[in-house]
Design a protein around this nucleic acid. Structure first.
Lengths: 217, 217
DNA sequence: TCAGGAATGGGGGATCGCCCCCATGGGCCG
DNA sequence: CGGCCCATGGGGGCGATCCCCCATTCCTGA
């Protein structure tokens, strides 16, 4: 085959997804006349960043749910180290918080893993040439679903510690503040998310994608 | 190409995974000399069962995390309607409970989405001819990780309702029993899982994969 | 400069969860 | 048939939570 005009790094924690994407990118004519050369693959966020720094590819195909570092972090690091790289995110998660974070962070392409991938194939050439495309599917979600409230730093920390099963007292010790203050953050969280108990809070946080994805439970 | 000896149905909620698997199966020589014909695809558990009943394929490639019906349910239904179908599960989840359920239910092949897929390719022909293969990766987990305790029906129901954010009173009304009995189930759950609060319970349940996967939060 | 938010902390009260006690009845298995 | 477990339900205590009140400090933006 001819020398491809574009090259790419693929980051996804599932080897099957990586090989499927690699085949599709490299096949001449499907997306680009000469195909897109896949320089390397990464199975977690940290190695994704490392590969981007090493290769400075024209395209980074990125999954959001990855060990070690989530999608937004990798996106920001890519912008820092390789400004010419177009970043396209493929995700199976459709939580509003996550999507709007990615869009706000300036992702170049955003597509759903679940929906038909012809949209991805047809739009990718334009993205490689400088356009930007957010899938219709996600645009609908962004319009229809009200944005989840903005949490402060302390509230986010408190939320993550609640989700990992810690009590008010343990959180207070962990953050070096009084139990009463933790109680206050908890109350603010519940008000903002419009819930009235811990189980509801957790259920809500998981659904809205408010969890720090890099931290495992 | 020649008429393939085997045919398959693919079930996964991600279109990208489906097309990647379809390409790999159909490519002559990679797995079978003449390839494996993919009869149809399914994006959720219910249509997976429907496609199996319609085609009675020699192979069902199955994901566990799907809307409408989880992996174990689809496996059981497949056995009921199409005994000759070999069922191979590909999963990104490595929770002990889920794995042992699948093995106990008699899955013919079990592979990880995350690890290298050469094991999957090399073992598939043997599975099609009647062998059984559980990935080394999962065998290790089954050996090293102690099995999570067996929950009774009521405990499982109670747990799922706790996870969806309902209070004791709401659970009592939902199940048509007294708050005190719900309290008892809760206490039994906590003892079995060795935790002492709702957040810990939820964190544990998510990690162990004790949740009914067909139910979304 | 001044209002507003974030973060800190305390008082207090109502409710709920957590865990101990107790009892009854049904099913299953050696 | 005598345990044993599951499911049911009640009493009661203690601590944790949820949510209201209040105050102070700091920082930022109009």
């Amino acid at each position: 085959m001819n020398d491809p005009k574009y090259n790419a790094v693929i980051a996804d924690d599932h080897a099957i997804v990586r090989s499927g994407l690699k085949d599709a990118l490299e096949k001449p004519g499907l997306i680009e006349p000469d195909g897109i050369r896949v320089l390397s693959e990464a199975g977690d966020g940290l190695s994704a960043i490392a590969e981007v720094r090493k290769h400075r590819p024209s395209l980074l195909l990125l999954d959001v749910a990855m060990p070690m570092a989530g999608g937004v972090e990798v996106l920001i690091e890519t912008r820092r180290w390789s400004k010419e790289t177009r970043v396209v995110v493929l995700t199976g998660i459709s939580a509003v918080g996550l999507i709007s974070d990615l869009v706000d962070a300036g992702v170049d392409g955003l597509f759903s893993k679940a929906s038909d991938n012809t949209e991805f194939y047809t739009r990718l050439p334009g993205i490689l040439r400088g356009q930007r495309h957010i899938s219709e599917y996600f645009l609908n979600i962004l319009e229809e679903t009200p944005k989840p409230p903005v949490l402060t730093d302390r509230e986010r920390q408190t939320l993550n510690m609640i989700l990992s099963g810690r009590s008010n007292k343990e959180i207070a010790e962990g953050l070096g503040i009084s139990v009463k203050t933790v109680d206050k953050h908890r109350t603010s969280l519940m008000q903002k998310l419009n819930v009235h108990s811990v189980p509801q809070l957790i259920s809500r946080a998981l659904k809205e994608g408010l969890i720090d994805p890099s931290k495992e439970l």
